[in-house]
């Protein structure tokens, strides 16, 4: 199955509000090996790749809408541009837009952009991702 190029420009529904908690940041920081806090409080920023949690939720919405199985997706590229650091207490949502779709060696290469915003609509981070979708073997 290949993705219909007509999805270019399509925006998927905004993800449910996600409250950034100290515990979740701590868990994420431990997983990537950058201690977030100590007895006296935070010793570093929230890990730079933490917004992937939001971007991933937005991507799942896209995959669900297009009936694409996650195991057929390989991450091709990811970049983040930050307007401000994420911090515990932030309530964030993400909305994914399809930038382009092209066919490469039997796979669909889908470029996406997810805007991660706060409740006032302020942009916190833009996460762009290229997703490589391998269809079922012929």
């Amino acid at each position: 199955m290949s993705l219909d190029p007509s999805i270019v420009g399509r925006r998927y529904p905004t993800t449910a509000p996600y409250t950034v908690s100290t515990e979740k940041v701590r868990e994420f920081a431990r997983a990537v090996g950058t201690p977030y806090d100590g007895p006296e409080g935070p010793v570093s920023q929230v890990p730079a790749t933490f917004p992937i949690v939001l971007a991933f939720a937005a991507m799942n919405g896209f995959l669900e809408a297009e009936e694409v199985d996650l195991s057929r997706i390989v991450h091709g590229e990811q970049s983040f541009t930050y307007e401000r650091p994420v911090a515990p207490g932030d309530v964030l949502t993400a909305r994914l837009t399809i930038s382009s779709v092209r066919s490469l060696g039997g796979a669909d290469v889908v470029a996406t952009s997810s805007a991660i915003t706060d409740p006032d609509g302020g942009l916190v981070c833009t996460a762009t991702a290229t997703l490589v979708h391998r269809g079922e073997a012929a």
């Binding site: 950058t34 730079a48 790749t49 590229e77 970049s79 930050y82």
Partner: peptide, 20 residues
């Protein structure tokens, strides 16, 4: 990003990206 944080003393990151 962990290496960047270690080199920079956990400086604020403004951009980060790569191709896999």
């Amino acid at each position: 990003a962990r290496a960047v944080a270690e080199w920079s003393g956990a400086a604020e990151v403004l951009e980060l990206g790569a191709k896999f």
